[in-house]
Design a protein around this nucleic acid. Structure first.
Lengths: 217, 217
DNA sequence: CATTATACAGACCAATTGGTATGTTACAAG
DNA sequence: CTTGTAACATACCAATTGGTCTGTATAATG
């Protein structure tokens, strides 16, 4: 937030991106003015148009940074889950639980997903920008599906289910939970929704249980 | 779409609302200009500001119409499900299936949910407008929860689950599916996601099955 | 130290936009 | 038929906004 004493173009650029992201998630892209962005970033229009050719340029740079972070975060979480557990089912459950943990640990409600923000103003963006959304969505589908195929190979599902849409469930449920988080101001939404996804996967792929229901956790 | 020969203020108002809704779901509220709205509605600024005091007024009127439609649609679907089945579990499953059916029957992908559109520009709206979003969300929660409590009373769940977040699942999953629909241009998203929710509820509340998995439908 | 390009700052501009003011036309009441 | 009011239409305005232009300070380079 505070300006650096010495010149640091990288930091200035990042501050502009951070400011823009925060504003966009509350006002949308269109209503987020360049003046407001530079104001919050503690810099000026001169700096803005030095780092970005136009406001559209900012949109693309911002969503690319967001997508890269989302991707690396997914890959790291999956790698962690794969180290902590050996069974594919446990790995998926753990992956989801890791996300739950993070969102529960936040002290303020998650401000929202940039992809969702963009998609409800999709006509404002060029195809290259929208392609980033598409690629990110398909990445989640690919990664989750591959893991779920491993699961299904080891633990035959108790119901015949479509694997592609099953792979989409976490992404889909997350986006929905973000919207509810913003609507109700309740930061527990994601974890509570994701918990049901875990329960679903346990019931679908888990071993048949003997009788009694376990006590609530 | 076509203008009426005779004067019909109600119709003019509705045409403006329809036009605004379509534009907002693609451009967001901020980027949707009054000129564009009246252009698409085949009328003029004079008509617009005769029917609505301001653009903010339109926003509120629009979301109130949307919420009322959403509510009556939910209540009618639930009533239908309650007539077609007697068991609460079957009623819930049927309610979800009815929604699947409708979205599958559409010839163009669902253009999106106005609530989600508003929430990602939430800072642009006054509290009265945002209250509509909140109320609609809580209505879904209340209705679904009441029905699910009936279900749980008759069919003890195989896992101890939080009923409130279970009630939120359909709303949440729908919002997520709408975003994926828009991102991928795939109109089958909602039905395929909702199908998993049905399977989850079946596994959670359904009778213990004897062994084999049923053939894919 | 001189030079030059980078990294800003801030005044300025043309276009857009919500809203208004004024006029005109349909339609119902008397 | 007259008249008044609701339902529009259109020209116009002030404010906002993305973008530019000019100027300046910093820092790397020779």
């Amino acid at each position: 937030m505070d300006a650096p004493r010495t010149r640091d173009p990288e930091r200035t650029r990042e501050r502009i991106l951070d400011s823009a992201q925060a504003l966009i998630l509350d006002h949308g892209f269109s209503a987020t003015t360049v003046d407001a962005v530079v104001g919050r970033a503690g810099t000026t229009k001169g700096a803005f148009f030095h780092h970005f050719g136009s406001k559209s340029d900012l949109a693309r740079a911002l969503v690319e940074r967001y997508a890269a972070l989302d991707r690396s975060h997914l890959e790291e979480s999956l790698a962690r889950a794969e180290k902590l557990a050996s069974d594919p089912l446990q790995q998926v459950l753990l992956l989801i639980a890791l996300y739950e943990e993070e969102f529960e640990a936040m002290d303020e409600p998650f401000p929202g997903c940039l992809f969702a923000s963009y998609i409800y103003e999709s006509k404002l963006f060029d195809t290259a920008t929208l392609e980033v959304l598409r690629d990110s969505t398909l990445l989640w589908r690919r990664v989750m599906r591959a893991k779920l195929e491993e699961v299904a190979a080891l633990h035959p599902p108790r119901r015949a289910v479509d694997m592609e849409s099953l792979a989409d469930l976490f992404y889909s449920l997350s986006e929905g939970a973000f919207i509810m988080t913003k609507t109700l101001g309740d930061k527990t939404m994601l974890a509570r929704q994701a918990r049901h996804l875990r329960t679903y996967l346990e019931l679908l792929f888990g071993p048949a249980e003997a009788g009694a229901t376990p006590p609530p956790s």
